[in-house]
Design a protein around this nucleic acid. Sequence first.
DNA 1: CTGAAAGCGCTTACAG
DNA 2: CTGAAAGCGCTTACAG
Lengths: 344, 344
Amino acid sequence: MPTIRDVADQAGVHPSTVSRVFSGNAKISDETRARVLSAAQQLGFQPNAIARSLSVRRTETIAAVVPHVFQGYFEDAFFPQVMSGLLDAAYPRGFRILLSGSNSHADEITQMFQILGSRQADGIVVLSTRLDVDTVGALRRQSTPFVILGRPVAEYPDICWVDTDSERYTAECVRYLINLGHRRIAYVGGDPEVAVTRERQAGYQRAMDEAGLPVNPNWIVYGYFAENGGYRAVHHIKEIGETMPTAFYAANDLMAIGVMRALRELDLCVPTDVSVIGTNDAPEAKHIFPALTTLRVPYAKMATKAAELLIDAILSDEPATGKAYIPSRLIVRDSTAPCKTSEV
Amino acid sequence: MPTIRDVADQAGVHPSTVSRVFSGNAKISDETRARVLSAAQQLGFQPNAIARSLSVRRTETIAAVVPHVFQGYFEDAFFPQVMSGLLDAAYPRGFRILLSGSNSHADEITQMFQILGSRQADGIVVLSTRLDVDTVGALRRQSTPFVILGRPVAEYPDICWVDTDSERYTAECVRYLINLGHRRIAYVGGDPEVAVTRERQAGYQRAMDEAGLPVNPNWIVYGYFAENGGYRAVHHIKEIGETMPTAFYAANDLMAIGVMRALRELDLCVPTDVSVIGTNDAPEAKHIFPALTTLRVPYAKMATKAAELLIDAILSDEPATGKAYIPSRLIVRDSTAPCKTSEV
DNA sequence: CTGAAAGCGCTTACAG
DNA sequence: CTGAAAGCGCTTACAG
């Protein structure tokens, strides 16, 4: 491949001049520019991005490491929406996305620090939700900017994150059910180790408390974000001899779909007998029967905002700052209806 | 950030020695290695990947440009499956994925050649299905390895691609319907500009021809891969006064879902009155009612194979070669049944 | 506006 | 096994 030196020779100028016409911002006479450009054209020259990166200490790349996760991760709405959002922010700013895989949660962290330490990217958006205090602390101690998608459990003043207010919006969902007359409402959470599971649970608890409704511990079940987990949650409640709740809030749509499958087996009709609300507004939510009422979480927007904050930080040569909540929205479809009965 | 030189000073050795302990393959005395490692540890040194890349002329990165596509692209199975497949191949080989956006089909090509020409990655997997002869020709003329996901229309002997045999597997689907007794079968294609649309149509035609069944041109409709497109296909057939086919093959699941929605409006029951086969086995296919019989296209496997061929080429310093078809598989669920009537 | 030189942080062939 | 030097292909402060 031709280098800047080949072009310089061909055009009869110094390599630095060639560099100047390609980096754009320097003053170059029209005549010189034309000579350089035509020489470059003839030789098929394109500047080597790696050499440029080394010199300017910027790669115009932001990184993300893809979490090591449950089977079906790539069937969920989260990943593609996040990618879409990152590209939306990066592309118009001339940045690209560098993706790394990982094969365990520990390796995920390793990969992050690898990319950061080896300066393979100018910044990183952290997709992992399970950052412990150590990891966040280590992230702050290094100098490459980062922003976390999801509020980390440890609150540092100077950390940058973007999230949706899970507690608040789950509370809104549960309030919606309560306003429909439901009093026995179940919460089907994801992995209890994950922060968002606890946040949503807190929202559920809050809405129930505010309405003065008792929460039966048996109504709180963890389905680990799997269809099967939602399915089993219903059967679990049934098996321990509990009266069936008249409404379920599930922390993702897959689990909500599992809940509906189990209810069908028990000859309980959705929404006539039981109401169900899911979370995420996955593609299947609107195609399922009955169409699923769900809390739409704006992953793409969150990722866009995260990438914007990150790129701003990179361009200004400062650590990323700012904390942002992006609103979620309840999408009412056909899986929710007024409660038939009013006894507790 | 500390450099190799800082570590060398600290350890009292030459920078080249530090380089050798970090690049791994050189013989270094245990004592020297220990000194270097401890110096590196103290300083928090990690080798700069960009400097290394410039020196060894390898980035350990493969690129892909995300096509500029219809709204809903990121809700489809294609993109996440491909990403998953690329990561599956790249990660264990120590490669990362570099992603670029694009804002038009032309720009997609531009971005590709940008990445290739600027050597920002060691190779590229081409996701675009609309490569014309010029583009493929230009790709061959440059020296960075590439592999195309999807067989390009122009057949070059030395080009590397991975695909599924769309014609063959669509023919199998149609044959399955024919064996169920269906004789009036409609084909709902995607964008007729896209090669796969024509390949599947050829498969449809072939299966019909082999069975000696007439193909009514009115049964061939293009739904542009959208739910609405499938929906309109059915109404279109109805409106022009055509007898309704007893079976539909749709080139993706979204369109199949649209077909089912339209049939429901016409009070035609799936599968009792009409059978429907979709394509891709999108996540919603198994959750929809009735569960959709569909041709599962192994995008993840295709992408893995593509990335493997690409990385092999990179490591051997040769252009990528080989052509591979990955088998698709018909997943029979509840949207297909024997034909009630046997008149044509 | 253009040239000459030093530098970005590594690697590696060549000596010893 | 280790050092000294040249090189990977750019950029940019310094002169003029």
